[in-house]
Amino acid sequence: MVSPNTPETIAEGGGENFIVQATEIWKSFGAQDVLKGVSLNVARGEVVVLIGPSGSGKTTFLRCINHFETPNSGVVQVNGHLIGSKLDRNGRRVDASAREVAKQRAEIGFVFQHFNLFPNRTALENVMLGPVKVQQMSKDKARSVAIDQLTKVGLSNKMDTYPAQLSGGQKQRVAIARSLAMNPALMLFDEPTSALDPEVIGEVLTVIRDLANDGMTMIIVSHEIGFAREVADRVAMFDDGQIVEIGSPQQVFDNPTQVRTKTFLSKVL
C-alpha cells in the first residue's frame, strides 16, 4: 500500500552509513493509530534497544522493518532496499511482489518472543531449512553451516533434539541460530526473553551479547533494562506510537529528560 502522503520518489541506496532508515512510519489497526510517524536510523554495527510500555508500538515498529506489517505511510529501507516496495521505471514506488519481499526478508533475521521453532524438525533441521530451501544450498553445506551456528550458541550437543525436548532458553538459542544461518545483515529481536524462565534468560542474553561484540547490527525490543544498559549503543523510548526520547543508555536511563521516560523507568527499575 503506497499512501499519497509519502514522497513518490525515493532515492534507493540512501545514506551509506545507515543500514536501517525508517522514515515517518505511520501504522493503524482499524481506528487505532499504533505508530504516529516514527523515524529511526541505525548505523552498521549499532545495537538499538527499544523500550516502553506495552501497546506503545515497539513491536509493531519492529515488524514494519521486515514487512510483517505494512505501514500506512512512511518508508523503510534496509541495506539500501526499500522494504515492501520497489521503484518502477519512472522512479515511482510500487508494491514489491511476494518473491521480492521474501528476498528482502532473507537479509533480516527475526527472533520471536515465542521462538516459533518448527516442532516437526530437529534443532539441526530447523537451522538447515532456510539455507536449503531459500538459498538453494546443498544439504551437506547447509548441515555444516547449521552445525557451526548451533555450536556458536552452545548447542552442539542438541543437534538432533526436537523442540519439544528443549528448554525455553535452548529453543530461543536454536531460533537465533536459525536466523543467523541465513547470514543476515540485520537482526531484529521481539522481546526475546519475555517468555523465558528467569534462570535461562542469562544464556540467551549471553548469545545476543556475543553477537553485539561480533559487530552484528541489531534492533531489540526488550524489558531487560540491565541488559539494555550493557549492550545498547542507543536506547529508544516508545510511548503512544512515538519515540519520545532516544540516546545513549546513560542519557536515557540516568538522565531522562522526558516525564514519560521517568514514569516508565520508575515502574520497571
Partner: peptide, 21 residues
C-alpha cells in the same frame, strides 16, 4: 500463525512456507 511468520522471516515466500512448513 507464528509458524508461517517464522518461515517468512527466513526468507521463504508464502508458497514455500505453505509447502515446507
Amino acid at each position: 500463525v507464528g509458524q508461517n511468520e517464522a518461515a517468512l522471516s527466513i526468507g521463504m515466500t508464502p508458497a514455500q512456507s505453505m509447502r515446507y512448513v
